[in-house]
Amino acid sequence: MPSSENTMPKDMPIALNIQNLNVYFGEGHEKFRAVKDVSISVAAGGSYGLVGESGSGKSTVLRAVSGLVTNWDGTIAVNGETISKKREMSYCRTIQMVFQDPYASLHPRHSIDRTLSEPLRLHKFDNIDDRVNQALVDVGLGTSFRFRYPHQLSGGQRQRVAIARALMLEPEILLLDEPTSALDVSVQAEILNLLSDIRKKRQLTYILVTHDLAVVAHMCDEIAVMSHGEIVEVMDVQTMRDSKPQHEYTRELLEASEGYQAEA
């Protein structure tokens, strides 16, 4: 079992520590372990990538951390504190999530204004108007978008709104579930740049889930490769850039990302 300890920057505190996480779907005979003994630790201010194909359980890890999936065991600790299955209100101000499909993650009948101001009202923030306007400027949309509805926006613009929403409560950790896989490459570049800028500016911790090795290599310092619910390899980004992964499956993924080889 490769350990993530040796590649961790020692001086940084650990923002997220997951030990022996198992996630289950279904009950009784149908019970199925979607995530098996996953352990990762992410340094504060770091950017951690989870790579894998569909059904590898990578998104499920995020959903367990965020609290959307409750049927799990193991330990999840945020900033050194072990969290329970029932989440406190304050947890929302620590961890937020950006979803894969911007066409499905914004409420179709709510204006952008409502989408962005609702979390502020829930957590009794002041200056709601100013904060919403500022959030729109921060994600590069501008205040003229404030009273529009999602159907008036393009995919990239919607994803910017979704990022703004995740940032409204000023979280420290952002969970990114395939944030660009539903977007065109040119739009993907814009969104990835935006995410990099925001991380720099706000010193956020990212956990990025994706199937695209190039995206994870661009965004993350440390990468875990998942297959069939298990982590098969943990490596730093340099290992990946040098094409020196240990595990057969990782090599296969790397090869496929280079394009098609006739005699494989």
Partner: peptide, 10 residues
Amino acid sequence: ALPDIHQPKD
């Protein structure tokens, strides 16, 4: 616009 595994850019 494509990120490249082997040639990192900011």
